[in-house]
């Protein structure tokens, strides 16, 4: 079995397992929807006010929704022992963790991105900014999943590690949040957002290279 066949097998297994529990699959998406709905209820539903908050609301909600699914990223594999098998595999561990992260993103990040235009309109963002909302989330949510996998791997052995996971990850999410939300805010105000999007792309490529290595190392530490 070649290296990429192993990565593909991991990815297919993840997707197949997820398809057996569609309810769990919808949870982050529902969470995203509910959080974005609650914000206008906590203030006055004036279009200008909502549009002012919209970039932050969309991005913070996406960030928390990503966090929600992360705790389970390696948990089941750790509990049933298949993580040990993964570690013993001759294929590079970074590639296998990358497959797991990709599956996580396909199951939580991508649906968020697809739902975001509707929520952006509900929050009173102009139609011209929808493209940037989608693009910024498309570039940003994989960063959240990649960095998140490091935290998930570090806390895999800890029961009820949800709050700890949030403490570990939220500071690391700051640059992504700043860049993503400000890209949306810039376009809403009629300014170009190229700079923010390029920087998000740079962060994504950095995270693509480094995060799987770090989470692979963290998994080895966790299963000692």
């Amino acid at each position: 079995m070649t290296v990429f066949a192993a990565a593909w097998a991991v990815l297919r297994r993840e997707l197949w397992l997820a398809s057996r529990r569609p309810g769990e699959l919808l949870q982050p998406l529902m969470f995203f929807l509910v959080v974005v709905t609650l914000f206008p209820l906590g203030t006055r539903p004036e279009p200008e006010l909502l549009a002012t908050m919209a970039p932050a609301v969309l991005w913070v909600a996406a960030l928390l929704a990503t966090l929600l699914g992360l705790e389970r990223l390696f948990r089941a594999d750790h509990d049933d022992g298949s993580l040990e098998q993964l570690l013993l595999s001759p294929a590079p561990l970074a590639l296998l963790t990358f497959s797991k992260v990709l599956a996580h993103w396909l199951l939580t990040g991508l649906p968020l991105v697809m739902l975001s235009p509707m929520l952006a309109i509900m929050l009173g963002l102009p139609m011209s900014s929808i493209g940037t909302v989608v693009l910024s989330l498309l570039l940003g949510t994989p960063i959240l999943s990649l960095l998140g996998s490091i935290g998930a791997a570090l806390t895999v052995g800890i029961r009820r590690g949800g709050a700890l996971l949030a403490l570990l990850l939220l500071p690391l999410y700051v640059p992504t949040l700043i860049l993503g939300a400000s890209a949306v805010a810039a376009v809403r105000d009629g300014l170009p957002a190229d700079g923010q999007l390029y920087l998000l792309g740079a962060l994504l490529s950095g995270a693509l290279v480094l995060a799987p290595l770090a989470s692979g190392l963290a998994l080895r530490i966790a299963s000692e």
Binding site: I150, L154, G157, L168, P171, L172, V174, P175, I178, L179, L203, L210, A214, L217, A218, I221, A222, E224
Partner: peptide, 24 residues
């Protein structure tokens, strides 16, 4: 295990410190 996990997190943090600093 705690020592190695904390060490890895500290290193991940230090890689992110300049990025966080400049973005803020």
């Amino acid at each position: 295990q705690a020592a190695r996990a904390a060490a890895l997190l500290a290193i991940v943090g230090v890689v992110n410190v300049p990025i966080i600093h400049f973005s803020v």
